[in-house]
Amino acid sequence: MARHASVLELIGNTPVVDVSALSPKPNVTILAKLEGRNPAGSVKDRVALSLIEAAERDGVLVPGKPDQILIEPSSGNTGIALAMVCRLRGYLLKVVLPSNVSPERRQLLLAWGAEIIDSPGSEGSNGAVRLAQQLAGEHPEWTFLYQYANPANPWAHYTMTGPEILADVPEVTHFVAGLGTSGTLMGVGRYLKEHKPDVQIWAIEPPSGEMVDGLRSLEDGYIPPIFIDNDGTKLLDRKVVVRPKESIEWTRRMTEVGLFVGLSSGAIMAGAVKCANTIPDDQVATIVTIVCDDGWKYLSTGAWSDDIDEVVERAKKIIYF
């Protein structure tokens, strides 16, 4: 347990901690799975390793072969996790990054040796996806893993995160996680439903469509192919929007249970509390929620120290989810 041949062996098997002190109901236990404990600092380590290993199995990437270039759109954590894995495997990574992510994310990508290609901040993650698709089309020699559509993304959660949750929390009744690529929800959700069909799967999302002002029409909308491929609308039981202010409030409240978490994890905790509030008083429930990453990458937002209304305005201008 204590000695490992590679940092990649440290991915997964993250701890679960009881945060029920924040539960609004005594009959509802809330447990948080701490994905910030992964070596590159987020839940996306699992996805990055899964994407790279699948590409190597398929012969798309060959370890040790020189000058292999990957391109990927990411608002941060996937890029950071991929950059770490690529560094170890000797691949070159270009990350298409919306220009309005927190500066820490940018710094971390550079630390791991990734190249950053800026996409317009006003177009949010949509813009990054579009630009990456365009560049991948222009450079067929580059490898485009495309986390939004790659089955290796939910597979990581179906084979690792889901089984870990059920092993550690066999009494789980609800799973609450954030909806980005939908990889976590599709993978864990499908695994849990197969083994405990009564488990409720809740998706939490920020009001992205409100913040992205680069849309020309509704036809510019985007649904991750993974969500469609896994019949996400059927798999999910509820989907709830959490506003920036609630996200910051719950990011702060997580410190009451000793957890210093990223803003998206604050949003997800706010969603877990909403979920708890729907459970009748005479029903015992156990909610498992995900802490995607720790707070370090968000210190520049002043989320823990500044006036909350100022922080909310700042948060609206950056991509934190």
Binding site: S74, T78, P207, L215, I223
Partner: peptide, 12 residues
Amino acid sequence: ITLLPAVAGGAR
């Protein structure tokens, strides 16, 4: 009631 276009979420 809030209407929002479906866009790529953060996708950390």
